[in-house]
């Protein structure tokens, strides 16, 4: 079972509907700072798309580096246990995709694949972001 995204930055139009969808899914309202996917503008080149790559992430260093074993791979879904996280930021530095950041409560936050049906993918009209399947 492979968990991941097919990402084609060349197709991304930088509309940020994925960020909106993420925020709406997790908070119920729009606050883009809480989105777990970030579209990073680098005109004229295609944007950077910062989101957890799950099975496509080589070595998954966030799991290794976490000193309290708060991050685990559960059937492909790399998840952070917020009750265990101490906010040390080691995973933030280790993530090769800049896909983890600290939230308002100073705990590590990342994409959880919405449990299997990522809201961001449904909102992407240009098919820059597709689901690989669970």
């Amino acid at each position: 079972m492979a968990v991941g995204f097919d990402i084609d930055a060349q197709k991304c139009t930088e509309c940020e509907r994925c960020m909106m969808a993420c925020s709406l899914m997790k908070l119920g309202y729009i606050q883009l700072g809480h989105s777990r996917i970030i579209i990073r503008r680098q005109w004229p080149e295609p944007p950077g798309i910062n989101i957890c790559r799950f099975d496509d992430c080589e070595g998954q260093p966030c799991i290794e580096v976490c000193p309290v074993e708060a991050i685990a791979n559960r059937d492909g879904l790399v998840l952070i246990d917020r009750d265990t996280c101490t906010g040390c930021e080691a995973c933030v530095d280790a993530c090769p995709h800049q896909a983890i950041r600290m939230d308002d409560e100073n705990l590590a936050l990342k994409c959880d694949f919405c449990g299997g049906e990522p809201a961001c993918v449904k909102e992407c009209v240009s098919e820059a972001l597709c689901k690989r399947g669970v």
Binding site: Q10, E14, C15, R17, W43, V125, S126
Partner: peptide, 16 residues
């Protein structure tokens, strides 16, 4: 040519 959107826009008419 690369299409770029305004915030939240599915039309993306701004062509770079």
């Amino acid at each position: 040519t690369r299409a770029i959107s305004c915030y939240g826009c599915p039309v993306h008419c701004g062509m770079l």
